[in-house]
């Protein structure tokens, strides 16, 4: 178990992230679209994405120190990184996901 986790984090092959949104708010919709586009392009089948709607569950957001939405929290690979906003800045998003900008 421990070995497999170590291996996973070493290979940087798998991404785990949480996207905090506020219902169907404009920025939240854009953020979800921008994120999914990048994930399908670059991480197909190699990521877990959880979407949390703070209008339904704000406590999960507070637990992760998320104060505004939309916000993307990348939990794996470490370190934890938070990107705020509609994720329209692709280079910032790629950097947070530890992906090569030029590829």
């Amino acid at each position: 178990m421990i070995l497999s986790v170590a291996k996973e984090s070493n290979t940087y092959d798998h991404r785990k992230m949480i996207l905090f949104v506020a219902g169907e708010g404009l920025n939240s919709v854009r953020a979800r679209e921008n994120l999914l586009r990048v994930c399908e392009d670059r991480l197909k089948g190699r990521y877990d994405l959880e979407v949390v709607d703070v209008l339904k569950d704000y406590k999960a957001a507070l637990a992760h120190n998320i104060l505004v939405t939309p916000a993307l929290l990348v939990t794996e690979p470490p370190p934890k990184v938070t990107v705020l906003g509609d994720l329209s800045d692709t280079s910032k998003l790629l950097k947070a996901l530890q992906l090569d900008l030029t590829a």
């Binding site: 506020a22 708010g25 920025n27 703070v54 209008l55 957001a61 104060l67 939405t69 939309p70 705020l84």
Partner: peptide, 8 residues
Amino acid sequence: QQVDAIIG
């Protein structure tokens, strides 16, 4: 203007 909610 990329924020649509401020929590708590």
